[in-house]
């Protein structure tokens, strides 16, 4: 087997990103859309950590920590919105809500 290089990580990262994007674009269930966003962010984190290791520099990891923090904040708010939405509209399907129209 080839030794694992950065390129491996990048390919994995891209793949995970695309999987997440597909999830965001195609799923109707908002909860799963949120999970897909987590996948995208994880793809980014893997990339950051890989390069951090590659350059022997922890800045990338620090960035990853911030990504995790922001992701946590984002999920919290999104789920809050989700609950409010479910209470008012009785649905968690993304294509049944068009409040952004006009």
């Amino acid at each position: 087997m080839h030794p694992v290089t950065n390129v491996h990580y990048m390919v994995l990262s891209v793949a995970l990103l695309l999987v997440g994007t597909i999830g965001v674009l195609t799923r109707r269930n908002i909860v799963i859309i949120l999970m897909s966003i987590e996948l995208i962010l994880n793809a980014v984190n893997i990339n950051l950590v890989a390069f951090s290791h590659h350059f022997g520099d922890v800045h990338g990891q620090v960035f990853a920590i911030f990504v995790i923090a922001v992701a946590a904040a984002e999920t919290t708010v999104a789920l809050g919105i989700l609950i409010a939405l479910f209470r008012n509209k009785e649905t968690v399907l993304a294509d049944e809500v068009d409040l952004l129209k006009w």
Partner: peptide
Amino acid sequence: AAGLFLLRGAEFLFAAQIVLY
């Protein structure tokens, strides 16, 4: 992903990933 972090020497992120995520 956490395991990958561990492989790349990011032990702290490994822990943070499991605990936080």
